[in-house]
């Protein structure tokens, strides 16, 4: 059991390192170092950067040293909580990202919850009533859900909302709360706005999860332990819910490992269409403005976020699956 946790932890760490290298590569990709672009953007904005300031920055990030040293310096800055400056805003990246990252987490979580809450019962239904009309309908809807990319669904929802309900379904807050400090009322406002983004974001994942749950459960339903459970005199309902569903849940839970990255990915682009105040629009803006420092940091943080989520789901899986818990290797 400990070995399992350790293995997962090490893998998570390696993944974080891989993400950090990729983010660093992205920061480094544009020609010139980012101090140069920093100075350029400051001057363009009418501000000035003193020679001493530039020197201090160069020293801080080791820009005259080999790339590996630069990378290590950058990482150590980040570990200390210093994410650098966002050029366009001329504010620390941390301040710019803060709330938006939280909202990204909230939206992604809501989408995951929606996905599971819908996929689980439908998957069970489709497997138990295989080849029924309901199964066909859900399978069909599932295929449609798979085929419509998140942003397109967002566009359609936006259009339908506007055309037929005369309402702007975008945004996460009502105007009066958008800039307000956090309060209970603002939180409630957030909850009220959450369903549409969560559904839009979760739909294609839901379609996949339904298919996964259905085929898992179909496999399990054929196994002899289901027959022996029936032979023990349990009601059919209880047999199915207690045994095959429970077993099929395990691979289902482990799918969060790629459901989460998928949803976080989707949140970027859906946020843009639905104008949600997540890190998505910020990332796009930063990339278009070639503010690679901000962009790289966002990519890094998103990556770390998914890794943490995946690690938590690994622990969850261990908790529910005795085969992993009791593994003696």
């Amino acid at each position: 059991m400990l070995a399992y946790i350790l293995r997962r932890l090490i893998l998570a760490l390696i993944t974080v390192i891989a993400i950090s290298i990729l983010s660093f590569v992205i920061i480094q990709l544009p020609p010139g170092d980012f101090i140069t672009s920093y100075i350029a953007s400051m001057s363009a904005g009418g501000g000035t950067v003193s020679e001493a300031e530039v020197e201090a920055l160069r020293e801080q990030y080791g820009l005259d040293q080999p790339i590996t040293v630069q990378y290590l310096k950058w990482v150590s800055q980040i570990v200390q909580g210093n994410f650098g400056m966002a050029l366009e805003w001329n504010r620390p990246v941390k301040d710019v990202i803060g709330d938006r990252l939280t909202l990204t987490v909230i939206i992604s979580l809501a989408a995951v919850i929606f996905t599971w809450a819908v996929a689980l019962p439908i998957g069970i239904y489709s497997a138990v009533k295989r080849y029924s009309i309901g199964d066909y309908i859900f399978t069909f809807i599932g295929f449609i859900g798979l085929a419509i990319p998140g942003f397109m669904l967002a566009l359609i929802v936006l259009y339908v909302g506007f055309r037929y309900f005369n309402a702007n379904v975008g945004g996460l807050f009502s105007p009066e709360y958008a800039e307000a400090p956090w309060s209970w009322a603002k939180f409630q406002d957030l909850l009220a706005h959450l369903p549409i983004p969560a559904v839009v974001l979760g739909l294609s994942g839901t379609a996949q999860m339904i298919r996964i749950m259905r085929s898992n459960l179909l496999d399990e339903l054929r196994k002899p332990y289901v027959m022996t459970a029936r032979a023990r005199g349990l009601t059919e309902m209880r047999v199915i819910l207690k045994y095959p569903v429970r077993v099929a849940m395990n691979p289902f839970i482990s799918t969060i490992g790629y459901l989460l990255p998928y949803i976080v990915s989707g949140s970027i682009i859906v946020s843009l269409v639905l104008s949600l105040p997540t890190v998505g629009p910020l990332l796009l803006k930063a990339l278009i403005a070639q503010d690679m420092f901000l962009a790289g940091t966002i990519i890094l943080l998103l990556g770390v976020m998914t890794v943490i989520g995946t690690f938590i789901s690994d622990l969850l899986l261990m908790w529910v699956d005795p085969r992993i818990r009791l593994e003696r290797r």
Binding site: L11, I14, T15, A18, I19, L22, S23, I26, L29, P30, G257, Y258, P261, Y262, V264, S265, G266, I268, I269, L283, L284, L287, I288, Q290, M292, A295, G296, I298, I299, L302, G303, T306, V307, T310
Partner: peptide, 21 residues
């Protein structure tokens, strides 16, 4: 392991970063 790591990355932000560069 490499596959596992790649699968756990959110792809769109990475693509965006690479494409923007």
């Amino acid at each position: 392991r490499v596959i596992e790591i790649l699968r756990s990355l959110p792809t769109i932000p990475l693509w965006m970063g690479l494409a923007a560069a």
